[in-house]
Design a protein around this nucleic acid. Structure first.
Lengths: 198, 198, 198, 198
DNA sequence: GATGAATGAGGTTTCATTCAT
DNA sequence: CATGAATGAAACCTCATTCAT
């Protein structure tokens, strides 16, 4: 499914709509300051409104976080599936996955993707549930590729375990990697690939 | 320096003292519930005292977090240096480092070590500074070993980069690995080593 | 500038607005009980609201004190300039000034004026600064009149010094003088004038 | 009665005793920072002890304030009576009183004297009572002199009123006068005398 | 859709005071 | 006499949330 189709289906919010702006702004804010340290007043003020007005769009602050994360994963899934189509070998597929995840983490498109990890705890179980479903789908794609690589002897440890390692390595980049620094995102991807594939 | 010497030097708190119990309890609490969601009342009540009493020992809540993290790194450094002494080859040294960090992250000894990553933002710059110094020392040990491994062609990417990857992979284990699960800590260490060393 | 103009300019708060009521109530409370002994709960409860609600209007308790004092001086300045216009001789001007200050200190209009002296210390330097500017303007008016009186030989000590003495004498009245007592405010003014003018 | 006699009678504390040091330190502290803003920890730490230890000497913080003020007035009374003995005329007596009060307010001897005014409210009625008695005696001395001056036409307003004015003028000097400045204490005394005596 | 004014629960912190040692 | 640890009430303040307009 394409992004446009997802918007029409109501699965992700049109980024040009008022709600879309809200989510984008929230994503950036939560990423920069953290969810707990971002107040609804902060968010509203960045949107040029008063805090009370937010509650017309979302029932509470947590729902905003939930929407930010959920839509980020949905968009990441779409991008990932698009990328996989163009990859022939399993090695290329892994490279495509790494590329997509680096983009999700450091690209300008989607500030909300990385929020998931540190702010996961701030979601109630009800709000976690729909995200977990999406996340499973997302991880299943990785698993399929890594399992095949392991079967072919291209990586030294079993697919599920390797996914954990790679995910950790990639998420950690938020703490040290700057897209504008000496190491380009492309080089980062290549290096990570080299590090684990023999 | 040994742990006993560190205690005598006032660098780490005697775990049997009142302050030591406070720090240990705080570490566990902050790890389980997160720093922001842990209230001083929670902490005090676990210690069997009233919230005001905490402020006899530390000037504010943040100072407790600072102490928890600082002492955890100090202890980790000691354990790491002890372990390195007994390693002969550089490969054994890397295994020792991985072992120490897995212990720091999942061992019963030191619940405070992993807090550093998610709660770093809750420290003011003044409180970050002394930790950064310790952290540099800690990372320097890793760098030395990994640089040598790279020079010897044992790993595929440069030492600094590989450290970031390994750190990420190890920190991520907090989200999925249970020491009591099917995969033992020892096996985890071995698998991570295999994943990146050729 | 008239009081109405000051309100329009945002320099003083409309006494009929919610904020104006807040300031008036705070002024009285701070005067009666002192700033430190007045709690935000006290203030809120007199206003028929909860303590948290105060912080919608002012960022903290000190800002309320600051506003109370600042506006009191602003109003006092207006009254003083109005009164001076109607005075012909310099002697009449001094009488007018004394009258205004007695009114400021004991009148029903402005309970905030006298707070300045005992509560000055409770303001941070940032909050003192704007008040100091106003105070200088206020004192300059006194100085001009007293300097002229000294030049004409009507008072025995130099204007600046005499102002200190008169200010002290007038502020001290808060400790012993009751407007409803035997000595009327008018008589008090006259007596003070007699005491220092020959 | 001399100071030595007062010490022997237990009416004032020997300044060289531990208690005397406590009171002197408290007086300075309360004067500099205000009673409410001075914590018992501050005081204790200046005395080189811990806060709990203070309560061996005084039952509570307020009692310290009470003692500081009470002894200050007692000492001031002694100095005043000594000074009056050496004055011949009523004019000289007034000058002596002014001199004594300037010394009490700005001298190095007795930092506690001026505390009375701003901190009066912090005393309960029971603690105010014994001070009121002393204060009456103190004020009576002033009244006697000023009444005589009024009777002789040397001042323009009745003694009680003039005392209020002079007290206010003198207490106000705490806010602007520095003994080390251009205007000497002696000159200040002389100017105040000139300001009100014709 | 948005505002502005509150709510109210809950947070951290302060600090005089107590008391066993 | 003094310590050190704790008490406990009360303080200021935060902030998501509500709701009449």
């Amino acid at each position: 499914m394409s992004t446009e189709q997802l918007i029409e289906a109501g699965l992700i919010t049109d980024p040009d709509s008022a709600k879309g702006r809200l989510l984008r702004t929230a994503a950036r804010l939560f990423k920069d300051k953290g969810f707990n340290r971002s107040t609804v007043r902060d968010l509203a003020s960045e949107l040029g409104m008063l805090s009370g007005s937010l509650f017309y769009h979302y029932p509470n602050k947590e729902a905003i976080l939930q929407a930010v994360i959920e839509e980020s994963i949905r968009r990441a899934l779409v991008r990932m599936e698009d990328a996989l189509v163009q990859a022939d070998s399993v090695s290329e597929k892994l490279q495509a996955l790494i590329h997509c995840e680096v983009e999700a983490v450091h690209g300008v498109v989607d500030p909300g993707f990385v929020i998931m990890v540190p702010e996961w705890r701030n979601l109630s179980e009800e709000n976690q549930a729909p995200i977990l479903v999406l996340r499973s789908a997302y991880e299943a794609v990785w698993r399929a590729v890594l399992d095949q690589m392991y079967a072919e002897g291209l990586i030294a440890v079993e697919g599920g375990l390797m996914r954990h390692f790679i995910r950790g390595a990639l998420m950690e980049t938020t703490h040290w990697f700057k897209a504008s620094g000496k190491l380009s995102p492309r080089a980062l991807e290549e290096q990570l690939y080299q590090a684990v594939v023999r």
